[in-house]
């Protein structure tokens, strides 16, 4: 028996949904589910800083080395590229600072004294097969890890011969071959989650969003600038469309931290961002539109 199928689950602290828009044999549905869950378990047991037994939690206690798959290498080489480009503002070594701000494994949300993260070159070295810390540090891949996982789930589906799907990691999306159709996605209002401020239409690409409205405590939200030790407040939300979710996810965080010009020189993507006065900045080929007050000025 074949059917279209949909898979919903909790992973890395949020809700996921995978929709397949083509008939799949019942048995294959089960296999795919097992592969996805197996991959996520492996990912979390390595990279979750909310699990004390994860590899990176261990590396925060005692220096050491972990081996990297070629996929994992693409993740850390993107991190390194963005680290250099942003002069250290975008860094996987932000883990301890997030914990100090209160975003820890028990969600204490109680800030303590804050310290700047260590310099990459002082503690971390990444080769195409290994990641090594020469002194203990807490790695956090929260700025690109979800996108990375979305891409891997997409690859699992492709490997099983399934090409028409949408992977939805709680509002970060990867879509593939929608039979010529485009997926219409509302863009959430950063100040009112019951509203949308625009619509994007995507196909065969990823849309990732970032906003400070959820996961917010005290003066912090989930993005903290390691130079200022503050959460950026000038930008309320970012939306990025790129070929892969890992890049879209990472850039949606970067846009909070550095001017878009810096990123446009280096990467192929479209973006929109909403500033704290609800003004917009939208790249010329952003595949969507916003509901704006612009008409009132004409």
């Amino acid at each position: 028996m074949t059917r279209n199928f949909s898979l919903q689950f909790e992973a890395i602290g949020t809700r996921w949904r995978v929709d397949v828009y083509e008939p799949v044999h019942e048995r294959l549905c089960l296999q795919i589910k097992e592969k996805i869950f197996g991959y996520i378990e492996c990912f979390e047991s390595t990279y979750s800083r909310f699990r004390t037994d994860s590899r990176i939690s261990q590396l925060a206690q005692k220096k050491g080395k972990i081996s990297l798959s070629s996929d994992e290498y693409t993740l850390f080489s993107l991190y390194e590229r963005l680290y250099r480009l942003t002069n250290g503002i975008f860094t996987p070594l932000i883990g301890n600072l997030l914990v100090e701000a209160g975003y820890d494994e028990t969600y204490s949300l109680q800030p303590s004294e804050l310290h700047s993260p260590p310099d990459w070159d002082n503690v971390l070295s990444v080769t195409d097969t290994t990641l090594e810390l020469c002194s203990p540090a807490l790695i956090d891949i929260g700025a690109a890890g979800k996108g990375y996982l979305i891409d891997r789930i997409g690859e699992i589906l492709h490997a099983e011969g399934i090409h028409s799907f949408c992977v939805d990691g709680s509002g970060d999306l990867l879509v593939s071959d929608l039979h010529g159709e485009k997926l219409e996605v509302g863009l959430e209002h950063p100040l009112d989650t019951t509203q949308v401020i625009g619509i994007v239409r995507i196909q065969n690409e990823s849309l990732c969003a970032s906003a400070g409205n959820r996961r917010k405590w005290g003066q912090f939200h989930h993005i903290i600038d390691p130079h200022t030790l503050e959460s950026p407040s000038a930008i309320l939300a970012t939306f990025v469309v790129a070929k892969h979710a890992m890049l879209a996810d990472a850039l949606s965080t970067c846009l909070f931290l550095v001017p878009s010009e810096l990123l446009l020189h280096e990467f192929s993507f479209e973006y929109a961002l909403v500033r704290d006065d609800l003004s917009l900045e939208v790249s010329p080929k952003f595949p969507g539109h916003f509901f704006t007050s612009a008409s009132s000025i004409d």
Binding site: L173, V185, G186, E188, H189, P190, L207, A211
Partner: peptide, 15 residues
């Protein structure tokens, strides 16, 4: 009418 909404991730229970 929308298929999806993109925005900040839903917040975990613990948070």
């Amino acid at each position: 009418q929308l298929s999806k909404v993109a925005g900040s991730s839903l917040t975990p229970q613990g948070f």
